[in-house]
Amino acid sequence: MSIERKAIVRGGLGLLAAVVLGVGLLGNFAGSAPVPGEDANRYPNRPVKIIVPVSAGGSADKLARTVAQKLGEKWNQSVVVENQPGGSSAIGNAAVAHARGDGYTLLLAGDALSLNALQPGKLSYDPLRDLRGVTKAVVNPQLLVVRPGLGVRTFQEFVELVRRRPGEISLALPGGAGSLQHLAVELLNERIGAKTNQIPYPGGGPATLDVLGGHVDAMLITLAAATENVRSGKLVALAVTTPYRSKALPDVPTVQEAGLADYTVESWQGFSVPASTPRAIVDRIHRDVVAVLREPDTSALLENLGFTIAASTPEAVDQTVRDDIATYRRVIVSADVQLK
């Protein structure tokens, strides 16, 4: 994810500390020691679990379940998706960080790994020490959508409405307080000179339900989680946060095209495992996940949802987490953000 200008995030990130302090007790840090005797040629010989650290129904969940189904067919084993939302993804992330490093517990990872690392309180895990990347599967823009009844059809009309009614227009944050969406919305608020009323959610599914139900006015969400509702007319898409348009919704302009120069936010999602997982097992998972992502039917399905296939190396995942931690830290310092 790249952020080209300052952003102000007040108070959101700090709420994670109390939630995640105790998670490390689970599994008694089972992932801290190497696992002997694991044979990559025999892997997997029992069911594999993918932990998704947000609620079911969002884009992360769709990606995980698509890959899980394909891996199950390739491996002739059950690949189960388990949602563990909470703490802006920190609970699910910690569960995998402290799992046994045998390749049978995978994490659907993303931007939250870097964002959580900036908490003022101590997390029960270190994303760089306790996890290792498998592949950055996809990159994708965030999409600003509104409920049809709000009466706006363009990004410019939305900005005018927020300026007329500062603090009144409600906007859902599917990733919760301190998430990528939170950072991106604070940047947007700064750029338009007026604030929305941000409401944190534990995932894209429940956030979308409240917008569809007319309880919340707008939402910034991963594009892949909203394409179907936009195409059906249940949500109105106003703009994407990347400097390029999405092939899935080619008629939706970028925020830059709509008038906010240099506004850029791009997120990623992929797979990580406990750091103690043997390299041979990591390489086997990487090879098979990348093969699945590159299957024509899988790539077409994910791209139609709004994802762009990345299929990176394991090292690229860890480097992205490292680089994003540095980027977010610079934004927080330069914007004089007070984390509580």
Rank of each mutant, 00 (worst) to 15 (best):
A60F: 12
R165V: 00
P141I: 01
E190W: 02
L21Y: 08
V289E: 13
R46S: 01
A326H: 06
E303Q: 08
A258W: 06
Q269N: 13
D210E: 10
P148T: 06
V19I: 11
D251N: 09
Q84M: 10
A280I: 04
G121D: 14
A316K: 11
L187H: 13
G176Q: 00
L302V: 08
D102C: 09
L188S: 00
V337K: 05
D323G: 01
E82L: 09
P141D: 04
L144P: 02
R330V: 01
D210F: 09
P253H: 03
A258M: 04
Y125M: 12
L71T: 03
G233Y: 06
S89E: 11
V145G: 01
R153P: 00
A30G: 14
D130K: 02
G178N: 07
G175I: 11
V9D: 01
A218C: 01
S78H: 07
L235D: 09
D39N: 14
L113P: 04
G133E: 07
P243A: 09
Q119I: 13
P127A: 05
P202A: 09
V255K: 00
S272F: 12
L183F: 15
A300E: 14
D262T: 12
A56H: 12
V48T: 10
A60W: 10
A94W: 06
V35Q: 15
